[in-house]
């Protein structure tokens, strides 16, 4: 039983890590939380649906397509909406409102294209039974994807000039001007890569549950919880935070159902964690 919960926790953590990497990095770089990340996840799920509505669709193709598709949507939204707004020194609250507005535009465009009814991918995932543990093939791909994304991002952030610059700007936005880094290029790249990962998270979420336009919104709260818990802009903090929330949710649900509460309260766990961090550790775990 406990073993199964641990596995489930890792799966949840992988999902949140993929979904929130871009959120935390762009939050750190562009200095505002992009609420449209919910819809980036949803868009990923629906782009994946193009492939996976056929029973013989390949999930890797779907992941790649979602990654590039959502990455492009994100880059486009930065160029058309957020870059002009930042250039007009729009205040933080209006930036957040604009990102919510963009979210509605995306969600209802998706609703228009694919409809609001509940749909699902047509794949059947191989189930492996190892002793008491039940593991699906989907979970394995998801975990491996998160692991690969983590390693690639780690190498990128520590080894490449551009990656180091991203960390530098996230810590100190005025620095870029000094070192002569092309800040716009870095921001665009981060918006692309981060949203692309959120797109793959959408495919995984949809494969595990169902495909609906509210899919992303339903995990927005935990996404923000891990972002704040890990420390805004801090990728390594995010990994730890995703694991913590993954465990907290999966053990929490067992506890909640144990005391007779609805498992709808799964969300409430993220909320409680969010509030507790804000009270005791507003700068996240790292500091």
């Amino acid at each position: 039983m406990t073993g199964q919960i641990l596995v489930n926790s890792l799966v949840t953590a992988s999902l949140y890590l993929l979904a929130a990497t871009g959120l935390t990095l762009t939050f750190g770089l562009s200095r505002f939380p992009n609420f449209a990340y919910a819809e980036f996840v949803t868009a990923g799920a629906f782009i994946g649906f193009l492939i996976l509505q056929n029973p013989d669709g390949n999930i890797l193709t779907a992941l790649l397509l979602s990654f590039f598709g959502v990455g492009l949507i994100s880059m486009l939204s930065y160029s058309v909406v957020f870059r002009p707004l930042v250039a007009r020194s729009t205040n933080l609250i209006y930036l957040m409102i604009s990102s919510i507005a963009l979210g509605y535009v995306l969600r209802h465009t998706i609703g228009e294209i694919w409809g609001w009814r509940t749909q699902s991918y047509q794949q059947l995932w191989q189930v492996y039974q190892i002793g008491d543990l039940r593991i699906t093939f989907l979970w394995i791909i998801m975990f491996v994807t998160a692991l690969c994304a983590g390693i690639i991002l780690h190498l990128f952030l520590t080894r490449s000039r551009l990656g180091k610059a991203i960390r530098a700007i996230a810590n100190n936005p005025d620095l870029a001007a000094v070192t002569g880094i092309n800040k716009q290029k870095i921001i665009l790249l981060t918006w692309f890569f981060g949203a692309g990962l959120a797109g793959t998270a959408g495919v995984f979420r949809a494969a595990a549950t169902r495909v609906v336009p509210m899919l992303g919104w339903d995990i927005l709260l935990p996404m923000f919880a891990v972002t704040v818990l890990g420390g805004i802009g801090n990728f390594y903090g995010l990994i730890v935070a995703a694991l913590i929330l993954g465990f907290a949710e999966n053990f929490g649900v067992v506890f909640l159902t144990g005391i007779g509460l609805s498992n709808e309260y799964r969300m409430a766990i993220a909320f409680v964690i969010l509030i507790v961090i804000l009270v005791f550790r507003p700068k996240g775990l790292a500091r």
Binding site: L92, M96, Y265, F271, L274
Partner: peptide, 29 residues
């Protein structure tokens, strides 16, 4: 109260989260 001492984006995140939680509670109970 927890968010007001902090930056304004934290207030936004807390309040949007609170809105969802209230709805979940009334839905579940």
């Amino acid at each position: 109260l927890p968010a007001l001492r902090l930056r304004e984006d934290y207030l936004a995140i807390t309040t949007i989260a609170f809105g969802e939680i209230v709805r979940i509670i009334f839905k579940a109970e």
